[in-house]
Design a protein around this nucleic acid. Sequence first.
DNA 1: AATATAACATCTGTATACAGCTCGGTCAGA
DNA 2: TCTGACCGAGCTGTATACAGATGTTATATT
Lengths: 262, 262
Amino acid sequence: MRTGNKTTSKRNLNEPQSISLGAVRSTKESANERHQRIYQVIRERISLLHYPPHTVIGEIELADEFNVSRTPIRRVLQRLQHEGLVDIRSGVGTVVTDIDIKTMKEVYDLRMYLTELISELSPRIISSEHISATEALLNRTKLMYDGPDSEAYGRLCNDLHEVLISLIGSAPLREITDNLYYRSARIWITFLPNLVWSDVIYDQEMETAEIIAAMKRNDIRGVVQVRRYYLHTLLTRISDYLRGVGHATASPMKPIVINSSD
Amino acid sequence: MRTGNKTTSKRNLNEPQSISLGAVRSTKESANERHQRIYQVIRERISLLHYPPHTVIGEIELADEFNVSRTPIRRVLQRLQHEGLVDIRSGVGTVVTDIDIKTMKEVYDLRMYLTELISELSPRIISSEHISATEALLNRTKLMYDGPDSEAYGRLCNDLHEVLISLIGSAPLREITDNLYYRSARIWITFLPNLVWSDVIYDQEMETAEIIAAMKRNDIRGVVQVRRYYLHTLLTRISDYLRGVGHATASPMKPIVINSSD
DNA sequence: AATATAACATCTGTATACAGCTCGGTCAGA
DNA sequence: TCTGACCGAGCTGTATACAGATGTTATATT
């Protein structure tokens, strides 16, 4: 189909072929690296409710922000759609998915079972880096009693999740665990205004401290059991809240206004 | 390909165009439906080794076959890459992934655990359609002793898989189970020439028959335990073959009857 | 003959024009 | 005022030209 008489045969005779670019390699980002970078940025924005549910994300808007065309953006959004975080609607836009309680319950049940699998299938060796990283998270947690800060709490949860999935040796299980986490993580922050802040932080501090203790015993089974217990605790806490407001389920989740003033 | 002409009259003639009844929705295929169709076709080709590992699939080749441009094809291939079935390499092509034994072991371990979860998390009601569909598969199995037919066997396994995942009520678990199946299904067919054909078909017949029996008892726990047992058996058989390559032929597998009374 | 290098064929990655879809606003008519 | 059809702004979906990447082949040099 392409006409053979193009300028490809005599292209770039003017430009020097290459002036030994050995050191400049780091400046160039490969396509896959860029994809991964944009993907993680947008996924974080969704998980931190910077893009709350029902937000319409425009492809052109993102393309301008990341200085690319719509094509790589669409690749990212299609991946996010397949992971259940957005819904691409023709003629409308890319809409951040809502948080459906029933689905969320299923995801949480799955996560609790899979968490136990981590210790049975292919645990990795717990290194001192794991421990020190988790201790840093514990310190960040202790500084958060002062006042509600949903975004900081969300980042804390995400970072703890990152440490824990790095303990999973089985690549498929790691991917699934990661995927399910980001599918369900938003509900924590969504319900945050309805819970007692200091209780939430206390849970987080206890979980982190117990995980560190288990890590120091090199007890990965203990780690995942702690994790599983706190997953259960939070799910129970949210269920209790939902039962408590029972009738007033018109808008169980108010969108949190994240201060995005510019 | 349709340049500016709005009419859909010049569509594919080999596809039966439905006669316009009241609802004419089926005349036009939506973008998502087309994506799903192409995706399933290519995934089946990979699972049946119609595209064996290391096959290079060209985007233009597929685009011509499905009468679309590269854009929708790329969307399908990117999805398959994310699911681990192909590897898209810039400047080279889209390469069907090889079957790595270590990863396959991890996937099989995961599948066995997840299979048990099916009966615990959210089982669906077993309908008569499920039973009759499975009985049809049993009949197909019984006709296959005549001679080795890897492709027919692969289709049989895929169809049985379809029936079983339709019993999963939890959408996330269903997706994960489906994904892991297609990640690992190819290894069955790959090792088929090294196994005794009649033994393989006998296993398949026994598994299907026992699944039907459990279905008729409305015993979904029994269904998944049968499934789990045969997963384990096949994995063991392949492991045995790999350990004893050269001097030991595949040992025939003893069928057992699962006692699923609790 | 062996080897390094340059040219090339062919593939994927990106940008972009345009087609198709959705929804809200607008305006004529009852 | 109400209704309904229509139109247009703005979005996603598709096709395509071109840029970049990669493996191979031809060629020059030793």
